[in-house]
Design a protein around this nucleic acid. Structure first.
Lengths: 203, 203
DNA sequence: TATTTTTGCTAACGCTGTTATAAAAAATAA
DNA sequence: TTATTTTTTATAACAGCGTTAGCAAAAATA
């Protein structure tokens, strides 16, 4: 049945146009102007059409969350590749995390700003697990090398993420031009934080 | 003029009742049900009365922001008092920050969750400066003791706050009963993070 | 061509923040 | 005490939001 095929294809196109229009609006006008009605307007369909593609507004946000975490997990994974030591991997991931946050402000704000992922959402976003693993594996590797103390990898994973997230979220709201301490300051804080984290594992 | 006096007094009472009713609702039902109309309902006045006390919704939030930062600054200040060393002061403040966040979830969510304070809001909230200073002074004191390297106090202040905020915000969304790693885990992460921060200054 | 299925729109419900307008109450002046 | 002015408060509207029920139009099937 070619007809059914075409219908599926067309439906998929509308779905994609919803996500495209929504993302376009978020990037140009920010999350505060993310609205079902505006999306409907942009794709030149009536509002209920959107509800035949997504259960509700949150379902659209969930979709962006998925994309965001996939992008982040892939970025960290790529940053690790080819590094000489676990410590270097961790440093590289820290910088990649920072870079992801600021080259994808909208994603970061959704993923960690509006409401940090709860336990339920973890199951809906497989890439969150990836994110966890790509970090933890480097920590485990490093702990294995420096066999001084027995570090809890999950504890260190949480510390690592905490430091990075705190750093990012505090710097994200400050407009570039309003930085009291000259440019490059946040990056120095990042390096400072990474440095003390590495030393914390080395013991 | 006793009449004008009484009017001012009564107006002040209504203003207080607005804040009381609003806070009551936030504590029992969360920020998502914070609404001008519901407040009006609770204080048994019509909606426009609220607008004769506060310019808009954000002005009410600003008021809570002020209270929250005052409370936090005072908590940190009290935690410092009587500690033997700057390092102890920092540890005490870290724990006090953590405790503030979880015994005042609603305040913390407003202050750092919904939208972290921007540069403009700093000028509207004097207690934010207090918060900055009470932390920085301990860092400076500690750097003076261990005269090894010349640490940038503002950099260390940002690191400190970043770590704490990240830690708190990641743990705040996880429901108590859903902690994968037994109770007391977040506190261990806190101590871990504090420890590596202190060492980062000691050099 | 007639019938059934699919698709999409209009219009509504109930909620939000904010404000213009008008009525009621209180304070002042005569 | 009565008339006038000022202050206080409420009603009702505007414009926006997410969501959904009901119905008309279009498309596919018989």
């Amino acid at each position: 049945m070619g007809i059914t095929d075409r219908k599926i294809r067309q439906k998929e196109e509308v779905r994609a146009s919803i996500l495209d229009a929504a993302w376009e609006m978020v990037v140009t006008e920010g999350w505060q102007s993310f609205s079902i009605r505006k999306i409907a307007d942009a794709i030149e369909y009536s509002v209920p059409v959107i509800y035949s593609h997504f259960e509700n507004k949150d379902a659209i946000l969930l979709e962006f969350n998925r994309k965001g975490f996939k992008l982040l997990a892939d970025s960290l994974s790529a940053a690790k590749k080819g590094k000489a030591s676990p410590a270097d991997e961790i440093r590289a991931m820290g910088r990649a995390y920072w870079q992801f946050a600021f080259t994808n402000k909208e994603y970061y704000q959704l993923m960690f700003g509006l409401g940090i992922p709860t336990c339920d959402t973890v199951s809906k976003i497989p890439a969150m697990q990836e994110f966890n693993e790509v970090i933890t594996s480097s920590i485990v590797a490093m702990a294995a090398e420096t066999k001084k103390p027995v570090v809890d990898p999950f504890l260190k994973y949480q510390s690592f993420w905490s430091m990075l997230h705190g750093l990012v979220s505090i710097n994200m709201v400050v407009p570039e031009d309003k930085m009291t301490h000259g440019a490059g300051m946040p990056e120095r804080v990042l390096e400072d934080v990474l440095c003390s984290f590495i030393r914390g594992i080395e013991g």
